[in-house]
Design a protein around this nucleic acid. Structure first.
Lengths: 193, 193
DNA sequence: GTCTATATTTTGATAGAC
DNA sequence: GTCTATCAAAATATAGAC
């Protein structure tokens, strides 16, 4: 078969970045074509389901990345500090230090296909489960680990939104920096020994 | 002049809700017209600058609301607990308990006019300033109050995103519930007496 | 102030040559 | 696998009657 002009992974990364900046509805086929370096018709060859298919491919791609580079580490055998450190490094790179919004929040608005929304929901649930394991290893009770895992996701998402709104990465950086303390503090409501 | 079919405030509220659900680019004139009960051409009569003008009107409207119902209280003379309580009640109502996303995050994606982005930035800055006043009154040092004010905004925005992603208002409710504790805790890095 | 009708551009998507 | 050309639908926006 004819050689591809652009590798599939590169195309998906470009498409992903357009979705993250423009949201689902703002990501027009023209913008997506420009970002990939392909013509619109060529995008339909790779993604026969059009924009919906691209959104699915992108979210699957992100799920694979998180599973490989973040969740695997969170569930691995090192110290909880080291595993948290790996996550923060990965997220700092993935979100460009806080200059790039999260695909999951981009897909919270507009006419995103239901299948994509469900995959996003499963992904955030899986992420929380991994963070619960981490929090338990950090000495938290199972109940409080659930709350802490949720709070970590809240702060990451909120930190990205605030960094974008303020045009300043500091809020996101401060979120990453306070995660170790958050996990090591004991709660008076949920003492964990 | 001919009587208005719909009051301006009602129209703006309807437009605002469409923007919050659909984002800027997902909010088509057709959707906006349906939500207001007006025809597209009538929207252009009220907002000669079209969608950009509607976004401006909406963000001005939200700025007025926050100033009146939230910031005024944060800077008032009651106890910090009472003033925080007022803010949480107002936000809980405004965000529908966590079922509705924030206009500010909706306007973080896509082809939002630069003027609107700047107004959003000023609004979040003003909000942070008011929260700093609150945190200082809660006994925090000026430096730590800045950080706490930022964290509160981070958690509110993140809580809304997570509640939407998970289709569950609990994360947002937990954010509101932990704000009093957040403000009353002393930081070892920034002791405030 | 609201409406119907219409103009224009952009969008998502397909057909078919190479 | 990529492209040019094209389509139908939907988008933003305007004109003018009432």
């Amino acid at each position: 078969m004819r050689p591809s002009k652009v590798k599939n992974n590169e195309a998906i990364a470009a498409i992903r970045d357009v979705f993250r900046e423009q949201g689902f509805d703002g990501a027009s086929l023209t913008l997506l074509a420009e970002a990939t370096g392909l013509q619109r018709a060529s995008l339909y060859h790779r993604f026969p389901d059009g924009k919906d298919g691209m959104a699915m491919a992108v979210i699957d791609n992100v799920a694979d990345y998180l599973e490989r580079e973040v969740f695997a580490s969170l569930e691995s055998g090192g110290t909880w500090q080291d595993r948290l450190g790996v996550m923060c490094e990965q997220l700092d790179a993935y979100y460009n230090g806080g200059q790039t919004l999260c695909l999951l929040s981009a897909f919270s608005f507009g006419s995103v296909p239901e299948q994509v929304r469900l995959k996003a929901r499963r992904m955030i649930g899986r992420w929380q489960d991994c963070l619960v394991v981490l929090a338990v290893d950090a000495g938290q009770s199972e109940a409080h680990a659930q709350i802490l895992a949720e709070q970590i996701l809240v702060e990451i998402q909120g930190g990205l939104i605030l960094a974008t709104l303020m045009n300043n990465i500091a809020p996101f950086q401060r979120v990453l920096n306070r995660l170790p303390k958050l996990l090591s503090e004991t709660s008076e409501h949920n003492p964990s020994g």
